[in-house]
Computed example of a mutant assay.
Amino acid sequence: MAVDPSVVEPSMLDALFAEPTAARCLAREDGRIVRHNAEWSRYLVALDSTFLPVDFPLRAATLTELRVPSWTRGAGAIRIPPHRPRPGPGPLWEGTLTWVREAGLEMVLVSLHEVSRAGVDVRLASERTHQASSQESEQRFRTLAENAPDIIARFDRRFRHLYVNARAEAASGLTREQLLGRSNAELGFPPHLVDLWHSSFERVFTTGRPEVLEFTYGTGGDARHYEAKLVPELAEDGSVSSLLAMTRDVTAWKKVELELREADRLKSDFIAVLSHELRNPLAPIRNSLVLLERTAPGTDAHSRAREVLVRQTEQLARLVDDLLDIGRLTHGKIELQPTRLDAREVVRASCDAVRPLFEDRGVVLDLELSSESAWVEVDRERLGQMVG
């Protein structure tokens, strides 16, 4: 796709073509050269177009014609790398190819100059060192990624997989060949997950900041919970060129988290019930204390007040004992003392103990026991707690 080329004034071109150290030519869109300088002629003397690489910015050049690849249009200033125009010894040339607008016409401006062999060697050596360093860094990354327990993938700006490790293959059920070069949408992942992932990818590419997301993959008993961290990878110019997604299976953690939440809910329910049960005896105890102050010893009212105090304090004591037993049970310190007994006796004693409490509330407690003995071997106190 073509873009608006740079606009140059005739005076600017005059200055450029007046430089004696640069070989320059200006050609129209159809390839016809309309202007060149003496250095361009010197470059052409050494030029063998068949010797130029296939992907070179220049295809062919003469004093009257210039051919360039179509991909150069709209690409801005394109660097022409150091090269010899023909096989064998000779000077190296490098420069730029730029589409410009002059007198309302789109044209190609080529500028070339000789470079020293030493300078080129230094630059090429630096490029080779940088490339070797990049390759070594990438190899270290892949060694770590292939041996990591997490799912690791790299995505380009079109959200396509550039790299996946072995764990990504195992988790998705797809081979590396099936994953690479395709986006999650193209691979047929559930639409709601694709929307979640791609919106997060877009934010990372736009802001350059890492992002964390959680999602569930699968349904029913096969569902797995994952947590992913998306990290931008920066190009030399500071832009986000790709991103890394490091995804961890947190299904086991989620299960523990749910169990802890359920345990916390049960504890809260227990405390609420216990608070209610501990509060119930307080009102009868307060009323009985008032009656004791206002009635004479030996009267029926005085005696009933004392009986209420005894029953309610015993009820409080049982509640506190139950609470202590729960603590002992949690820490594995409950000691049972099993004995052989008739369970009917424990049931009868428990009913006798709570019957006054029922009567205080106007509730009738009826007890019907079997005529046959119910022999069991249990801890009498614990069985009484269960019944009462």
Rank of each mutant, 00 (worst) to 15 (best):
M1W: 08
V3W: 13
P10V: 10
P10A: 11
L16Q: 07
P20W: 01
T21E: 11
A23D: 03
R24C: 14
C25Q: 06
L26T: 07
E29K: 04
D30N: 14
I33N: 02
N37M: 09
A38F: 04
R42G: 05
Y43D: 00
L44I: 05
V45T: 13
A46N: 08
D48F: 01
S49R: 14
P53G: 08
D55R: 10
R59V: 15
R59W: 01
V68L: 11
S70P: 05
G74F: 03
G74I: 04
I78D: 00
I80Q: 07
P81S: 10
P87N: 05
P89I: 02
E102I: 09
L105D: 11
L105V: 11
M107H: 04
A118Q: 14
A118R: 13
A118V: 13
G119I: 06
G119V: 10
V120T: 14
R123C: 02
A125G: 14
E138F: 10
R154D: 00
R157P: 01
F159C: 12
L162H: 00
N165R: 06
R167N: 07
A170V: 09
S172P: 03
G173K: 05
G173Q: 10
R176K: 09
Q178R: 15
L179V: 06
G181S: 12
N184L: 12
A185M: 03
G188V: 04
F189H: 10
P190S: 07
V194H: 01
L196T: 11
W197R: 10
H198W: 08
R209K: 13
E214I: 01
F215N: 03
T216E: 15
Y217G: 07
G218M: 05
T219G: 02
G220F: 11
G221H: 11
R224N: 04
E227V: 11
A228H: 05
P232W: 05
P232C: 04
E233M: 12
S239E: 12
V240K: 04
D249P: 07
K254P: 00
D264H: 12
L266S: 04
D269K: 09
A272E: 08
H276P: 00
L278H: 07
P281D: 06
A283W: 04
L289Y: 06
R294C: 05
A301E: 15
S303E: 09
R306W: 04
V308W: 11
L309G: 01
Q312M: 13
E314A: 14
A317I: 01
R318I: 09
G332F: 01
K333Q: 15
L336V: 12
Q337R: 15
Q337G: 08
P338G: 03
R340G: 08
R340F: 03
A343Q: 13
R348D: 14
D352S: 08
D352P: 00
F358N: 06
R361V: 03
L365M: 04
L365H: 03
D379S: 09
L383E: 12
Q385T: 00
V387W: 01
G388F: 09
G388D: 10
